[in-house]
């Protein structure tokens, strides 16, 4: 079952460049109806018809979860990426019709928390924007620490500091400002939960520090979507479907399976949720595991692969699909 099978036809109703790298897109239902409500931290998967290629990229919903008239996302342009963000930045216009998935939340608030401590890096701010709106509506207690390169690239810094002057703390790297993490974590009241969204280095830094300071694992939440990386083309055979085809240089294995007309399961398309886990029947070569779902021993066994982000180098790989 792929979450993407439950889809919504939308129209792009607004495009706002925020700064040199980040642009905001607004979607409304094509039939004029209301969109589903969602919970802060949820993402939607956006379908992009980029020439011959169909891209399906996840983006965090940043609008007010209670506002059913529109969804908004903010997209950082990744010039070195495979093209999803570039496509949105360059090809999408107001009035375009697009298809998005129902909201899926893999980064939900723990509603038992007495306090929500949020740590954001760069474009990792987006899920927190929705969570803050949800918490503000229900009198939830939160505190945001937001690190970005500089004022010009600090998306939503002004909005946040104006709306929540006592709860938002901003750090500009270029000005040498840095979060005093140990001190911050040390002083939190009992019942605090930590949420991290940002680059891998930041997530690891906060998780490691929290662990060292004795924070319970269940109180530390993070979201990191990996983008699939390009690589050498390879041949895949699907045993059940009895198909054999090439996975292109800039195509993920999952995208190639879909392009071959096979409905494979997925949710996050970023190596995090486990939904697309697939059994490997034969592999004449090396699997390049890039997910953070499989355990190390599963990766070493060569019997499993996460086709959304992982690749293969060798003669042929045969999957139980």
């Amino acid at each position: 079952m792929s979450a993407g099978t439950n889809k919504i036809d939308v129209v792009v109703t607004d495009i706002v460049p925020l700064n040199e790298l980040v642009t905001r897109f607004k979607f409304e239902r094509a039939d004029g109806g209301l969109l589903p409500t969602f919970s802060g931290g949820a993402h939607t998967v956006i379908e992009m018809k980029d020439g011959e290629t169909t891209r399906l990229n996840p983006y965090s919903l940043m609008s007010d979860p209670a506002d059913r008239h529109a969804y908004t996302i903010s997209v950082r342009r990744d010039d070195a990426g495979r093209g999803g963000s570039l496509f949105l930045h360059k090809n999408v216009r107001i009035g375009d019709e697009m298809v998005i998935s129902y909201p899926v939340n893999l980064f939900a608030l723990d509603l038992r928390a007495r306090k929500h401590l949020m740590i954001a890096g760069g474009i990792g701010i987006t899920p927190f924007l929705a969570q803050i709106k949800q918490l503000s509506a229900t009198n939830g207690r939160f505190e945001l620490h937001y690190a970005c390169r500089n004022q010009a690239l600090g998306s939503y810094v002004d909005d946040l500091t104006t709306a929540h002057p006592n709860n938002v703390h901003v750090y500009f790297d270029d000005d040498g400002q840095a979060l005093d993490l140990e001190n911050l974590l040390d002083g939190q009241p009992l019942g605090t939960h930590i949420y991290i969204c940002g680059p891998k280095g930041m997530i690891n830094w906060v998780r490691d520090t929290a662990e060292r300071l004795g924070w319970p694992r269940e109180a530390v939440h993070y979201e990191e979507f990996l983008a699939p990386q390009s690589g050498k083309p390879f041949t895949v055979k699907l045993a059940k479907s009895d198909l054999e085809f090439e996975v292109g240089e800039h195509q993920s294995l999952l995208e190639a399976i879909e392009a071959a007309g096979v409905d494979a399961p997925y949710l996050c398309r970023g190596g995090a949720c486990g939904q697309c886990e697939t059994d490997v029947l034969e592999a004449d070569g090396e699997i390049l595991h890039r997910d953070h779902w499989l355990e190390d021993d599963e990766k070493e066994s060569g019997k499993k692969i996460m086709p959304c982000v992982s690749r293969f180098e060798g003669r042929i790989i045969v999957l139980d699909r």
């Binding site: 079952m1 979450a3 439950n6 589903p36 969602f38 909201p103 949710l267 949720c273």
Partner: peptide, 11 residues
Amino acid sequence: LKFLLNIQQGM
């Protein structure tokens, strides 16, 4: 459990 955790809105 794995199946249930992945049940999504509208499904």
